[in-house]
């Protein structure tokens, strides 16, 4: 469903150039849930934004359901949608929930707007009472539910999730993760989930890739992650660090280039 071959992304030019993504390869099957983990700045969001069609400056191949994301193909909106990290920045402050959910339908010329909006709200556990609220009348978790509902309005096959719960507190995170798992089953969604929280990845994904400095370090299935038996030292360090704060571990962290 998702095909990425030799993906390279460079920002800036000359001496200032940063290779944010280097020679990345991975593919995700239909209905599969794939995780991308890695340090901050390792290029996870950048790779995701390429697949979302939001970054025009890349080379290599990147395709969703056989459609390259390079040309602004008219089929893409109905194939792939994205949920962003910050629920406070991803909703337009002057649009009601109703407007946010109707926009994709109106842009794509899909009718039957009212009932679809209500169904989508029920689907994400909000209910019609929330339909005409403004974002400033919603909590972070509720906003993220609206963002998820909005991403599903066009019934895409692929859902890209950029740290969808890292701005939420743990109890809301649990609700959103449960919701995403339920929606994935109900709509047979293919998911690509970026997170730096290994536990979230372990909970949500079938397979994952570990990124460092723009490149994929290793790919593994979730059982290997659960058994904590990665191949690479970099991943071992990541696992160690995710067990909570430890002076010793902190002092021994090394930078892998």
């Amino acid at each position: 469903m998702i095909q990425v071959r030799n993906l390279n992304v460079t920002f800036g030019q000359g001496a200032q150039a940063v290779r944010a993504v280097r020679d990345v390869n991975f593919s995700v099957a239909e209905g599969e849930s794939f995780g991308l983990v890695g340090e901050s700045g390792s290029g996870k969001s950048t790779a995701l934004r390429v697949l979302a069609g939001l970054n025009p400056h890349w080379t290599g191949e990147a395709a969703v359901a056989g459609v390259s994301v390079g040309q602004r193909d008219a089929r893409l909106p109905r194939l792939v949608q994205m949920v962003f990290q910050d629920p406070y920045a991803s909703l337009h402050p002057r649009h009601t929930v109703d407007r946010a959910l109707s926009e994709p339908l109106e842009i794509q010329g899909i009718g039957d707007v009212g009932p679809r909006v209500e169904r989508a709200l029920t689907d994400v556990g909000l209910g019609p009472a929330f339909r005409f609220r403004y974002p400033n009348q919603l909590s972070g978790g509720q906003r993220q539910r609206v963002a998820i509902a909005r991403a599903l309005m066009l019934e895409p096959k692929v859902l890209l999730l950029d740290e969808p719960t890292s701005a939420l507190d743990v109890s809301v995170q649990a609700e959103i993760l449960n919701l995403l798992r339920r929606l994935r089953r109900a709509h047979n969604l293919t998911m690509l989930l970026v997170s730096h929280n290994l536990a979230v990845i372990a909970h949500m994904c079938d397979r994952l890739a570990v990124m460092n400095r723009g490149a994929i370090v290793e790919e593994m299935d979730v059982a290997t992650l659960r058994r904590q038996e990665p191949r690479e030292a970099y991943t071992r360090q990541l696992l160690l660090a995710s067990r909570g704060y430890d002076r010793e571990v902190a002092a021994n962290i090394i930078t892998y280039d």
Binding site: A52, M82, E103
Partner: peptide
């Protein structure tokens, strides 16, 4: 550069919209 503009672009909205 905000996320909601990115979302609108992903939904296929034209520049004028």
């Amino acid at each position: 550069n905000s996320d909601y503009i990115a979302v609108a672009r992903m939904q296929g909205a034209r520049t004028a919209r």
